[in-house]
């Protein structure tokens, strides 16, 4: 024992011990960070089930739990409508993005035609332009087109996007050319080649894009805030913002509404985690 001590004075560990200690430290840090990231949601959840008297008291699990705020905010404050609208907008936005981006990316990746680079650069250049620059003309235009206060009006400005085109185009470019050539020799039309051969091969990219667009659409706030006027067309973020404005005075309503708004997306995230994170990966690595 003595020799061991002399060889390794206090504080110096074997590599193995060091690795174990590092692992313990790492897990400790990982655990310590969890409340920081999910705490605010838990606190909101906790507030949403409280009676009014003690909504600000410190315990995470209150003594008296009530779920009535959920039922009330859902039906009385038209959150059911907002939820339905959010779902419709998401379906429409995801659908149109998949279709438009997939269609547009195909010739940009696989066909040769004059102006290809130019079109691609032009489409891509919209990524540099902040939405806030053109939201006013867009708003004025939407008024004239009868899109004001409609769900289509919410979707249309982001029905297709440069990021989606870029993402799918990168993926198309990784597909070897033989399949396509064979089909072409068989006399298949380009649309046929795209719809039955090429497009189905891009499923991973499409899935990533779908999730990316879904999250964006579900959270989109500034544009709906401007283009929506009535409760018939409001989406969840707009509804929550209104609730937490001066619309109502029950903190629990806002908290309950907030939980209703984020719970589906969080659940969906935990089920399809791989695809969520895949989108970031596909988007950030240059092809």
């Amino acid at each position: 024992m003595r020799t061991d001590d002399r060889a390794r004075p206090a504080g110096i560990m074997t590599p193995r011990q060091r690795r174990a200690a590092g692992l313990v430290l790492r897990y400790a840090a990982l655990l310590a960070l969890v409340p920081f990231f999910v705490g605010p949601f838990l606190w909101m959840l906790s507030v949403s089930v409280r009676e009014t008297g003690n909504i600000y008291s410190l315990e995470i699990v209150p003594d008296a739990i009530t779920y009535r705020w959920y039922a009330e905010v859902w039906s009385q404050y038209n959150l059911d409508r907002a939820f339905l609208n959010s779902v419709l907008v998401a379906i429409l936005q995801v659908g149109s993005n998949l279709l438009f981006c997939s269609l547009a990316a195909y010739p940009l990746a696989r066909l040769r035609f004059p102006g290809r680079r130019l079109v691609f650069m032009l489409l891509l250049s919209t990524m540099m332009v902040p939405f806030q620059l053109y939201m006013i003309p867009l708003f004025l235009m939407s008024l004239r087109l009868g899109l004001f206060d409609t769900l289509v009006g919410i979707v249309v400005p982001s029905a297709a996007g440069a990021f989606g085109i870029y993402l799918i185009k990168q993926y198309y470019e990784t597909i070897p050319g033989d399949l396509e050539e064979a089909a072409r020799i068989d006399g298949a039309g380009e649309f046929r080649i795209w719809s039955s051969i090429m497009m189905p091969l891009t499923k991973p990219a499409m899935a990533a894009l779908a999730i990316f667009v879904f999250v964006q659409s579900w959270s989109n706030f500034l544009w709906p805030l401007i283009i929506v006027n009535s409760e018939d067309t409001w989406t969840l973020p707009v509804a929550i913002a209104k609730l937490s404005g001066d619309f109502i005075d029950k903190t629990q309503y806002i908290a309950a509404g907030s939980v209703i708004a984020v719970a589906p997306v969080i659940l969906f995230f935990f089920l399809a985690q791989r695809w969520f994170i895949g989108g970031v990966t596909l988007g950030s690595v240059k092809g």
Binding site: L33, F37, V38, F41, M44, V215, W218, S219, F221, L236, P237, I240, A241, S258, A261, V262, V265, I266, F269, Q273, F276, I277
Partner: peptide
């Protein structure tokens, strides 16, 4: 750690 990314900023 990724949960905040998928939730809406308003909430």
């Amino acid at each position: 750690y990724y949960v905040p990314v998928v939730t809406m900023m308003v909430v």
